[in-house]
């Protein structure tokens, strides 16, 4: 009789542990999703800013057509990625866009008139901030993914993770070399 109770007790504890670990994993996975949504919002914001920027800059920059076209092209490529694209693919496209933007804004140096334009200054603040937000959101996303992946790979939660089919998350890595060297856009 006692043995039965002991077995039942152990079973109950195991079930409770399973539930706790499962819920913990779900919480972490939701955090990863939420963090991804944050990056997404900022990437969209940047896509929306670029036509404006190109429009403002075009009038001043007669001889930089290629730079401008590169920005527009990179932006369109990044925007046309299907929503199903993974973090790695997105990161690559967005990295291209970042470096195209950085080249454009480096060229701005040669146009003092442009740097005095109020419209451009406002855009510049927005763009700096959006770049920052993207990198901060990426920090938070990667930290969340690391936490989640650790949890899916460590004992004993890895057992629950394989049983319930929790897949490891994908990091949002910057793949473009230039971007890694100079993550900030240089305006001045």
């Amino acid at each position: 009789m006692i043995a039965l109770w002991v077995v039942l007790g152990i079973l109950a504890i195991l079930v409770l542990m399973f539930i706790a670990i499962y819920n913990g994993l779900v919480r972490l996975r939701n955090q990863v999703k939420n963090a991804w949504a944050q990056i997404d919002v900022q990437l969209k914001r940047r896509h929306d800013l670029i036509p404006n920027l190109v429009e403002t800059v075009k009038g001043y920059m007669k001889f930089e057509r290629e730079t401008l076209e590169a920005v527009t092209r990179a932006r369109n490529l990044a925007q046309q990625l299907p929503p199903s694209a993974g973090a790695g693919e997105r990161a690559k496209a967005e990295g291209e866009l970042s470096s195209a933007l950085a080249r454009l804004l480096a060229v701005v140096e040669r146009y003092p008139d442009l740097k005095a334009n109020q419209n451009f200054l406002a855009l510049q603040e927005e763009l700096t901030s959006t770049e920052n937000k993207i990198s901060f959101a990426r920090q938070f996303y990667n930290d969340s993914v690391m936490k989640y992946n650790n949890q899916t790979q460590m004992f004993p939660s890895n057992i629950v993770a394989t049983m319930a089919g929790f897949k490891p998350g994908e990091f949002f890595e910057v793949t473009v070399a230039e971007e890694r060297e100079a993550p900030k856009v240089s305006f001045s």
Binding site: Q38, E126, S129, N132, K133, F136
Partner: peptide, 16 residues
């Protein structure tokens, strides 16, 4: 104050 607002939002994102 765009800059202040942006900076606060940046930190809000960074801290989660």
């Amino acid at each position: 104050h765009k800059r202040l607002y942006n900076v606060v939002e940046e930190m809000k994102i960074a801290s989660g």
